[in-house]
Design a protein around this nucleic acid. Structure first.
Lengths: 356, 356
DNA sequence: TCACGCGAGGCGAACGTTCGCTTTCCCGCG
DNA sequence: CGCGGGAAAGCGAACGTTCGCCTCGCGTGA
């Protein structure tokens, strides 16, 4: 039950008054600069702690022309991958003593008009973009102030923006190779949202692996699954309607794979005996599907850390090598949703290796 | 390839110079205050837009003594529930024109020493706490400046902090009642982290429902499952070792339920024929377990919205009715992991009602 | 003895705003 | 014709810092 307005914050002047020096001297002490007698230093420090002095970063930023704050523009953080990435970014920023201004955008992409101005008004030192849905938002890429350091975890329309992400082509390739090694020759794919860079890369990896092995990579082997489990279900159905002889499916992300798993079960097909399924992303939950999902682990957390690290380096005045693209390695996690291709009998069960 | 440091930001003085008035007049126009001739107003506005003027919120905050910024202290946002809640809070803050300073804390609870000062230095107008792991952090509750509006989504040790959360007791009660209605009489529970308020509330609801029905609620019917799927698996095993005649289990959250599901399958038990399972939280993924999980939906998003709304009301100077507790309603979602208790034959399959 | 140097601290300005008060000017009314 | 009043704009101060430069006084070397 607080009564009135908060009592005024204590400022450096208050501390100065209490220790009998000018406020500038106080400032010196509190930032470790200048030469101050040991006695007065101690007196000031004491006064500051007595009064519970908390420096005002607003004022400091005003004169320093930097806020030690990074703007974080993100999409939907219910997305497990994104939120891992955010966690990494946040932790790294914190480690380096930076604050984070958070804005998210609606799935439909609205919010750009709000997010950018909000960050600019607050004079953030740099911007970290982690919003897949705005990779083709031309306005954004255009509006983005070129003088402000920016790093993105997705490709940005205008180009020229530094990017940190996973090696998505490799991901597609690794997943597909795994299926090929298991003897599969007719391998379908459930893709993510068609237009996205991410989707294109994973698709490219998939095709590359097939080509390497001299195996068919027809267009009607890939079906767009979109973004969620339900999308995976209908995509798998459609794929199997067209090509019922498919023995393995590469899903562009784990949610699609979950959809595929449930759809297959509903159709009375056994996984992996009748059809192998491999996912991508390596969500925690993928370890607990039935059967546990073989997937390609994407280091979301590290992407966040690395992106933030790069951004802060740019902020600190490092070389603004615009448009540099960093790709982090991925790796396969073999569980039990994939197995050697069998003849008509479903005898061979155990997959090659296993991991958690 | 940007060359030097960013060219100075354009300030209200620059705009003033360009339109031939004093900067104070410019300020007047830009905030809509005071009386200014229509002609000059237009001229100033034009100049501002020509120059691409962006107001400096730091400076404004300095004189206004408010930042229009809320500090958000959160736990692990990989937690789907938490991240939904954050999404709600973010959206509501944005809607009301507030910015968000984000800090998260490590699972072990470290970070408090960092988070609070970081927020105070930046002079946030209020703090939204959404970090389950620090509900028993005495230091926090104590340190928390009583003059600063604070709302939390979990109980805070010191007390006196306004709280917005779900009606967790009701959740436990609803879930358990559902099982009772299905004819179950020996109902186990897999609890969350023992010490937590949340766990205690759900447990209380569970016991209340059992008592109402005059059914046994022995202590050895509840097993601590902790926080993740793996925890759910071992907890279920332990529970069934002790009481193998249990026909239904109430899990304190969906991850535990997933663990229970996989453990039951591994033990060769069918769900729901041999054992019904009901979860809690209503995560999206619960719709895609096998079988799809009956669960109690917790309105995480709304909790975020409501908490932020309340906080902003306090910030705006509304009554600081300290320690008020808001509990949002929950509701049952019936899927196929629960069914009527059967005799020894597993004939009755279809659950009462279904929903997605 | 005197100038010089240096340690300790103060002073003024600047950062980009908002806000209240004053000045100027013009118009209308008594 | 004089005066009050209101619209339009300017001015000064304040918010809480940092920073460069100045001043003071004391010890020291020539």
């Amino acid at each position: 039950m607080t009564v009135g307005r908060a009592s005024r914050h204590v400022s450096v002047k208050d501390v100065a008054a209490r220790s009998g020096v000018s406020f500038q001297t106080t400032s010196k002490v509190l930032n470790g600069g200048g030469s101050v007698a040991e006695a007065t230093r101690a007196r000031i420090l004491q006064a500051a702690s007595d009064l519970g002095y908390v420096p005002n970063l607003q004022a400091r930023s005003l004169v320093m022309q930097r806020t030690r704050t990074i703007g974080l523009i993100t999409g939907d953080f219910s997305d497990p991958g994104l939120s891992r990435c955010l966690a990494g970014a946040e932790q790294e920023a914190r480690r380096q003593g930076y604050g984070l201004m958070l804005t998210s955008m609606e799935p439909e992409g609205s919010g750009t008009e709000y997010a950018l101005p909000a960050m600019m008004e607050r004079r953030v030192d740099g911007i970290l973009l982690a919003a897949p849905q705005m990779e083709d938002d031309r306005a954004l890429g255009h509006v983005l102030d070129r003088t402000l350091p920016v790093v993105s975890t997705t490709h940005i329309a205008g180009g020229g923006v530094t990017t940190v992400s996973a090696d998505d082509e490799e991901a597609g390739q690794v997943a597909t190779r795994h299926l090929l090694e298991q003897g599969h020759r007719l391998i379908g794919a459930l893709s993510g949202v068609r237009g996205r860079r991410l989707t294109q890369s994973r698709l490219r990896g998939y095709r590359k692996a097939l080509d390497e092995a001299g195996v068919e990579s027809a267009n009607d082997l890939v079906e767009e699954g979109g973004v969620d489990v339900a999308g995976g279900q209908v995509a798998l159905r459609r794929l199997l309607e067209r090509r019922r002889d498919v023995t393995a499916v590469f899903c562009h992300h784990d949610l699609l794979a979950v959809g595929a798993l449930t759809a297959l079960r509903a159709m009375g097909k056994r996984v992996p005996e009748d059809c192998s399924v491999v996912g991508c992303d390596g969500l925690d939950s993928a370890a607990f599907t039935s059967p546990p999902l073989t997937t390609v682990r994407v280091p979301f957390y590290d992407i966040g850390v690395e992106a933030m690290r790069l951004l802060l380096r740019m902020v600190a005045g490092g070389p603004t090598d615009g448009g540099k693209d960093v790709a982090l390695p991925v790796h396969l996690i073999v569980r039990s949703s994939t197995a050697r291709r069998t003849g008509s009998d479903g005898s061979a069960r155990a997959p090659a290796r296993r991991a958690r």
